[in-house]
């Protein structure tokens, strides 16, 4: 029963994360949404495998601990990246165009000066 309740809770949080990821352009919002989804994932990892003697299986617990540390590392790095991007371009969003091929040549010319950033040192 407990497991089933928390599976539903995880599903709801996962859905909220997906929603947040889709609707918000702000990178920090996206990171918050991803962190929600990660929490939902961790909850599932603990609840779904059968428990042993009333405690969750120690192996998934260790995996989740590892996952939490990896999540905070990734988030910290992503935040640093976001601050830098914000300083350079003045807004904390990524270019909305997903695939430059869809825009063809026009796009390439437009971003060419900054995209060809590889200059002689």
């Amino acid at each position: 029963m407990t497991s089933a309740i928390f599976v539903l809770v995880a599903a709801a949080i996962f859905g909220l994360g997906v929603h947040g990821l889709l609707v918000s352009a702000h990178i920090m919002r996206k990171l918050l949404a991803l962190n929600l989804m990660l929490s939902a994932l961790f909850l599932l990892l603990i609840v779904v495998p059968a428990s042993i003697d009333g405690h969750p299986d120690p192996v998934p617990q260790a995996l989740v601990l590892t996952g939490i540390v990896i999540a905070v590392s990734t988030t910290a790095f992503a935040l640093a990246l976001m601050v830098r991007l914000f300083r350079k371009q003045g807004h904390a969003t990524i270019h909305p165009d997903l695939d430059p091929a869809l825009l063809g040549r026009k796009h390439g010319r437009r971003t060419a000066p900054e995209a060809e950033g590889e200059r002689a040192p």
Partner: peptide, 24 residues
């Protein structure tokens, strides 16, 4: 991101967000 241009930084950001989603 060692290439400090806006294009490289946003490419890095997009790669990171999608990669996190993938590993999830």
């Amino acid at each position: 991101a060692t290439d400090d241009g806006i294009a490289a930084l946003s490419a890095a950001m997009r790669y990171l967000l999608l990669a996190v989603l993938g590993s999830l």
